[in-house]
Design a protein around this nucleic acid. Structure first.
Lengths: 225, 225
DNA sequence: CCAAAAGTGTTAGTGATACACCCATGT
DNA sequence: ACATGGGTGTATCACTAACACTTTTGG
């Protein structure tokens, strides 16, 4: 079956989180050439006996000890010279995580995984800037058309926390009343009688997503028709 | 760079066209095992020195002699057992073509390329039913959010032809006056003074897309916000 | 009683939908 | 003159966008 092909297959994962009101991506600082010292997306080679999803989760776990998170396949990148070491085609996954749920161990591994602010993005190794830009577009689209935001929040959260998440990802401010109205019309949240008391102000009601599983908000996306 | 990997990389192409009011896909009838006799998407192995896009266009040209068409990368499919011959990961492209621009040579090649009606779809080889369904979803989304329809029409066309194309792809009827209004507001068409005379009725004005190049209709897709 | 975030409705404007008749041509 | 598809406008409805004050708590 191998037909004299000399192409290696890898996966790369773009892990997004929101921390302290900033959208961040998980990057690895490269310790070896090529691109030594530069930041790169976590990733690695796919094994013969694992699916692409399994490879993505395994690499993430190995390189950053981030586990059990939501991933979504994005696309494949295969320009001939995207990697100076040889012909490597990479399948890219987007991953989302609640930053509270997982704290990076400071410097457990030599890989130096770090959360990097999306607005302060440097030049990355390989074609990872392209991949990151594409992923960010996809994230912004998904957050508006699916319940993907559920993956970045704890089980229970307040409407203000949800709104803040949307604002951070989209990079724009939203009207509080209109936001709540629209969320209500989609009926994707389940209210609790509990409140979150925090700080010197009125406590906020807690909600959770009815479906934590990734799903579209509407059947029909209609811009033109 | 090869790290003992035994994964082969292929491309598959889902070519859509609209003929006689039906949405069709270009399929190959398999002449060899596995899945001998079944329909499959055109595709093949990527060469070491060509990009994924180049591989897709080359395979299409070799297997179906369809050339110079629009392709768009969709995703990658990599389940471990998707191909009984071994571990093969496939990058999938969607392609669109104006059926008038290209007539399949009846049986030039042994591959038997055929246009198959999307509504009469049989069970395909490999995981090609899954791929086809995903592609169809993507096509329906794209036709509503981008100018992708330009790829399936001749340079000049009438508004009725355009509307028919949308109706065929979306599988639903559209209101003539509302359709024209909306198309106008997007300002994506360039009118000509020429008319198309055909049949015993009033001639129709001809239009073309201002941008034939693939582009989004709106910056902001907002369903939720 | 002050500060701080939670919570809540109305109005105006814009875009979507529904709908029916006249026009230009070939036969 | 008739059959065929081309071309056009209006009224209603639904959704979006803009906007400000009261409530509940902790300090």
């Amino acid at each position: 079956m191998v037909k004299n092909q000399h192409i290696s297959l890898a996966v790369d994962i773009v892990v997004f989180t929101v921390m302290n009101g900033f959208l961040k991506v998980l990057l690895i600082r490269r310790g070896v050439e090529p691109f030594k010292g530069k930041y790169a997306l976590p990733g690695g080679f796919v094994r013969d006996d694992e699916s692409l999803e399994e490879a993505a989760l395994r690499e993430l776990s190995e390189e950053t000890n981030v586990k059990n998170i939501f991933i979504k396949k994005l696309s494949a990148y295969g320009d001939v010279n995207r990697d100076p070491r040889g012909r490597i085609v990479s399948v890219v996954f987007i991953a989302l995580i609640d930053s509270e749920r997982f704290k990076l161990k400071a410097s457990t591994d030599a890989m130096h995984a770090e959360w990097v602010n999306i607005n302060a993005m440097k030049s990355l190794a390989f074609d990872h800037n392209t991949i990151l830009n594409d992923s960010l577009d996809e994230l912004k689209l998904d957050v508006q058309t699916t319940n993907i935001a559920a993956q970045m929040l704890p089980d229970k959260f307040t409407l203000s926390e949800l709104q803040k998440l949307y604002e951070t990802i989209l990079g724009s401010e939203l009207d509080k009343r209109n936001f709540r109205k629209r969320i209500k019309t989609f009926n994707i949240l389940k209210p609790f009688n509990e409140s979150k008391m925090e700080g010197a102000h009125r406590p906020a009601q807690l909600f959770s997503f009815r479906e934590k599983k990734f799903s579209s908000l509407k059947d029909r996306v209609s811009i033109l028709l």
